[in-house]
Amino acid sequence: MKQENKSFCNRHVRDPCRSFGRRCSRLVKEQRARFYILRRCIVMLVCWHEYGDP
């Protein structure tokens, strides 16, 4: 069990930039998806307000 942790830590210490880049790209994707959903909801509400039943 100790040996697994040691190799796991060594891998992250050896290449921290790759791990950081993956985390950043994942966060960017997540934020982009959230903004897309938010934008679609706002557009739907605006269109519903403009073209909804009088």
Rank of each mutant, 00 (worst) to 15 (best):
M1D: 03
K2C: 12
K2P: 04
K2D: 14
K2Y: 14
Q3E: 08
N5I: 13
N5Q: 12
N5H: 09
S7P: 00
S7Q: 08
F8E: 02
C9R: 05
C9S: 05
N10A: 07
H12I: 04
H12Y: 11
H12L: 08
R14M: 02
R14L: 03
D15P: 00
D15E: 03
D15M: 02
D15F: 02
D15W: 01
C17A: 15
F20R: 14
F20G: 06
G21P: 00
G21M: 08
R22S: 11
R23D: 04
R23V: 03
R23K: 06
C24K: 15
C24Y: 15
S25H: 10
L27W: 08
L27K: 09
L27D: 11
V28W: 12
V28L: 15
K29P: 04
K29G: 15
K29S: 15
E30S: 05
Q31K: 12
A33M: 03
A33H: 03
A33V: 02
A33P: 00
F35K: 08
Y36N: 11
I37W: 05
L38S: 13
R40L: 08
R40F: 05
R40W: 05
R40P: 02
C41G: 10
I42W: 01
I42D: 01
I42S: 01
V46P: 01
W48F: 14
W48E: 10
H49T: 14
H49I: 12
Y51W: 14
Y51K: 12
Y51F: 15
G52W: 00
P54R: 10
